[in-house]
Design a binder for these strands. Sequence first.
DNA 1: ATGGTTGCTTTGCAA
Length: 263
Amino acid sequence: MKIATWNINGVKARIDNLLHWLGEASPDIACLQEIKSVDEQFPREAVEALGYHVETHGQKGFNGVALLSKLRFDEVNRGLPGDDGDEQARFIEGVFSTNRGALRVVSLYLPNGNPVDSEKFPYKLGWMKRLELWSAARLKLEEPLVLAGDYNVIPEPEDARHPEAWVGDALFRPESRQAFRRLKGLGLTDALRAVNGDDGVYTFWDYQGGAWQKNNGIRIDHLMLSPEAADHLVSVAVDKHTRAWEKPSDHVPVVLELDLEQS
DNA sequence: ATGGTTGCTTTGCAA
């Protein structure tokens, strides 16, 4: 079972890249972020033609997440609980049937949080607290759970080519990193870190300043696994080559393989 | 070096 996450930075601008990547990577479940589209305008027919079921949680202009799955959805839940006033589309959960029972997969787009002296930073930290509470409740189910997405958090200095340039940024502020550590402390495994160690693997390179050419990257796209999912961890790969494509997203896909089968 | 790039809500905003 291959489960991937990719911030595609606009599904309408990226549809050719998305279809090409789905064809070559063939994930069983793909978690997309920043579709920047309302549900009605998501190019679902083109994706369905490749054998995927499509569930979206979109909004006009920005944010928006989606789940694409070769498996039938048993259940879909939109929105992160804990704040009825939160209108931003950043969270969608799908439930699937496997040979080991229910598998839960979340596509999440955590708030960026910049600038830190605006209301955006407390919104980010509040969102992370809600994610922690939600995760703690889900972990009690003792099921395979994959929390995949753009966390907008650089967990450690090793996750940036130039960590000194990120000091003070919402992605690297102590409060953001602490909240990420609290999430891990619940018992979640950072899959890419577990497989690769601290060896400078990145998932995002800014469009500006020749960041890609200089490998000035950061690792902010993460797949967090419950113990029941981590027990089945086979491999994690970063599809770095997509960053060199025409009209690339500034993020690249991360692909997780679990020793689970659909049923 | 107060810049640089991309996508959408477009001549501003969010990333």
